[in-house]
Design a protein around this nucleic acid. Structure first.
Lengths: 238, 238
DNA sequence: TGTACATCAGTGAACGCGCGTTCACTGATGTAC
DNA sequence: TGTACATCAGTGAACGCGCGTTCACTGATGTAC
């Protein structure tokens, strides 16, 4: 009424990003988005043509900025501590947690991405793959720089162990501390009930998580690199 | 037409389990379920009163059998190899992978559970929490039996690292090898594109995954247990 | 053994509602001459 | 400077469709007397 024009398109993107990350594509209606953005229903399709296209634009917007920033951060970590495995692991995790747990947009980003990775529809798969693959390739290279690589497949397995822990400890905090305006009682949610976050202050949590993951993973990486090249386990008598 | 009676209720549960695991609660309609089960639309609400209640019954059915079997398996592993960390880790992961990756029902189970953990609605949170909490408590106890525990919080962090890896390597296989009748081209999906499964045969994949996770995690667990009690990292000069 | 009634597992059609999308329209701003 | 037209951002109301759910009904089986 009073506002004449301007940021309608951005407000729709913000609201859509928030709702899609929280509830998933199917559970959110265009009317929900329009209401949350304080925008006329028809304005959503005026700016974005369709709900599916709005979702695509949310993914692109939320991912684009992160992608460059993360890759630059990774390169900086590698340059400052070449060949230092501890520094690479702790620097990488700290960068991710600071970016993801301390801003609302970061939380939306990672929740959208986890949704897409685990339950994504084929239409957006390529989009996400293009975003994520170079990132994890760079992570693998950072971790193995200067290490005695025995089995080339070992890098892929190691990146898997790192990714699994990253998602777990990220979701663990986010499920217990959802972004503003979460409509349900946060304490009742499953992830938070099963795996409480272990710290109340976000900086404490990040410090402890980085310390734990670094100690656990550096030992794990060294053990995998030192071991035999992934033989069959349980070869009868060993 | 020809079939007179009998397994209608079971067929609805089977179809619902399959579809909910694959697409999520909101994306599946009661009509989808009735069609997949070759059952009259109204029969779904006749047997289950509502879609929400059907979903609840799917969770209970799929979870009930697993729960007892997993806990019994864990106890067996502990009894056969008391205090043997390698045996506990590899036995636990092998049991999970055999159960999850080699049967269709197992795949549905874990996909439903991951959905609920990461994006679940509050209504089902307590249900899932009651199922999962005793399981992970038992896992933690199995891993730390006979180990020199320094920090009681370390057990929780270690279980987090184990859980993160478990989910990653489970989803990694399932996204590339979805259960029967998946309607999309499996190779196009995001998780499979970003993290290919590293083996084509399920037994090879399980062997390699168990070998990797065991080597990585046993070293990680020992490092965490041996280290100081989770201090702040980066204490300036170290 | 025969009839009457009750219960059960579905069935076919319809209910109203909320969905994504469309359409004719408005009022403000920009451009041409 | 003034008028005519074009473009743009948004609006309000409606579209048809698919949704979860309901309802009156059917035909088979079980139980009472």
């Amino acid at each position: 009424m009073t506002e004449p024009r301007a940021d309608t398109r951005e407000r729709i993107l913000d609201a859509a990003q928030h709702l899609f990350a929280r509830e998933g594509y199917s559970a959110v209606s265009v009317r929900d988005i329009a209401t949350a953005a304080s925008v006329n229903l028809a304005a959503v399709n005026y700016h974005f043509q369709s709900k599916a296209n709005l979702y695509r634009e949310v993914l692109v917007r939320v991912a684009g900025a992160k992608r460059e920033r993360y890759l630059a951060g990774l390169r900086r970590i590698r340059e400052e501590n070449p060949g230092d495995l501890e520094a690479a692991v702790s620097g990488f995790y700290r960068m991710h947690f600071e970016d993801t747990l301390k801003t609302e947009e970061g939380g939306h980003f990672v929740r959208l991405l986890v949704r897409e990775m685990h339950h994504g529809r084929q239409e957006t798969a390529q989009l996400v793959a293009e975003l994520v693959i170079p990132f994890w390739r760079e992570v693998g290279e950072a971790f193995l720089e200067g290490q005695p690589v025995i089995d080339p497949a070992a890098a892929t397995w190691i990146v898997g162990s790192m990714h699994g822990q990253l998602i777990h400890f990220t979701m663990r905090w986010l499920k217990a501390h959802p972004p503003r305006g979460e409509r349900t009682d946060a304490l009742g949610e499953t992830m938070a009930a099963v795996f409480p976050p272990l710290a109340d202050d976000v900086d404490d949590y990040i410090d402890q998580a980085v310390a734990h993951i670094t100690r656990f993973s550096v030992a794990g990486i060294r053990a995998v690199l030192a071991g035999p090249s992934h033989p069959r386990p349980e070869a009868d008598a060993s």
